[in-house]
């Protein structure tokens, strides 16, 4: 026990001195567990996040829009893969993570349990959802676990394209016909509050936050990130002539920030618990795609084995 405490103290001092933790370094079991939970949840969010957007690929309004959307959805797949591989360095397997996602044991961002009924949602998701993700991910480029931090650097570079293309879509609609402007406004109305919920429960209700901050996994609290996001985003909405669906939203000169209304936490917890509009569809679709793709994985393995044998025969004949 004595040595255990000193190891943990040493670890804390190491992290306090802004050193990065690498896969083979000693780390507290809880640090490892927290990271596996957080990174895999992050990876699952990228993967499940492809679904609401893939919904519009075949119906994109132009070839340009379709190419952009395809590239974005492909990026999300890539982000999921960087993150799965970062989580694997902690000793968990890809199969285990996918099994946990499909059984509901592992969570993903609740934002992806909302539907995308209109093309405008493709814009709003890029602008708000990716915008909120960037807010969180820029902080995570400085997270204490090396592989996670490095994955974040790459993801942040790519994420900027996602947000800008989204804003462009919303801008085109907001500056278009009255019907198009209405589409943009209704989409903003749908996504504003769920986007704010992406930062997680408020600080007094976020039991894991404090330890994560101490270990420098996180460096800013949920409420701080949320406020920063709001302060950045409100002027972007004003520029488009759109209205943020929050009657309590107003600039607070003293704080130098926007005050905003109460978030509906009942809705937040309800969606996390599996009762959002699309929770079941998202997992059902994931399982279906995984199972229907099984033959591809098997065929690739069979082909790899055959090729390996062929090579072996060639060398033994020579």
């Amino acid at each position: 026990m004595g040595t255990n405490i000193s190891l943990e103290e040493k670890f804390q001092a190491y992290v306090d001195a802004e050193n990065k933790v690498e896969p083979k370094d000693w780390m507290p079991e809880k640090y490892r567990k927290t990271l596996v939970r957080q990174i895999s949840q992050h990876a699952h969010s990228e993967i499940i996040g492809m679904q609401p957007e893939a919904n519009w690929i075949t119906r994109a309004p132009s070839l340009r829009a379709k190419l952009i959307l395809l590239a974005k959805v492909q990026d999300e797949a890539g982000h999921g893969l960087y993150l799965y591989s970062a989580a694997e360095t902690l000793g968990t397997s890809r199969d285990q993570m996918i099994a946990d996602l499909q059984s509901g044991k592992a969570k993903y961002s609740s934002i992806f349990n909302y539907p995308t009924p209109s093309w405008a949602d493709m814009g709003t998701i890029g602008w708000l959802v990716d915008g909120a993700a960037i807010q969180n991910q820029v902080m995570l480029t400085r997270t204490s676990y090396g592989p996670y931090a490095r994955a974040m650097v790459k993801i942040c570079k790519e994420e900027s394209f996602h947000q800008r293309q989204g804003y462009e879509v919303v801008m085109k609609l907001a500056q278009g016909t009255p019907e198009q402007k209405k589409m943009a406004q209704e989409s903003l109305n749908r996504w504003w509050w769920p986007s704010l919920m992406m930062f997680g429960p408020s600080d007094d209700n976020s039991p894991n936050s404090e330890q994560s901050m101490r270990w420098k996994i996180k460096r800013k609290s949920n409420d701080t990130l949320r406020q920063e996001f709001i302060d950045k985003t409100v002027p972007q909405a004003h520029y488009l002539g759109l209205t943020i669906p929050d009657p309590d939203l107003k600039w607070n000169d003293e704080r130098g920030s926007y005050d905003f209304g109460e978030i509906n936490w009942d809705e937040f917890y309800n969606v996390i618990q599996g009762n959002g509009p699309c929770n079941k569809d998202r997992i059902t679709h994931h399982v279906k795609a995984h199972e229907e793709g099984a033959w591809v994985r098997e065929a690739a393995l069979a082909y790899a084995e055959k090729e390996a044998k062929r090579k072996e025969n060639r060398t033994s004949a020579a």
């Binding site: 590239a71 492909q74 990026d75 890539g78 893969l81 960087y82 591989s85 970062a86 694997e88 360095t89 890809r94 592989p147 490095r150 994955a151 790459k154 790519e158 994985r297 690739a300 393995l301 082909y303 790899a304 090729e307 390996a308």
Partner: peptide, 24 residues
């Protein structure tokens, strides 16, 4: 070093790496 990925064999790993790590 840029990361890791899964593949059935090395040839496939190269192809996957191209899509996962060099899209830009």
């Amino acid at each position: 070093h840029v990361g890791s990925l899964h593949a059935a064999d090395a040839d496939m790993a190269i192809k996957n790496a191209r899509d996962v790590y060099t899209r830009r």
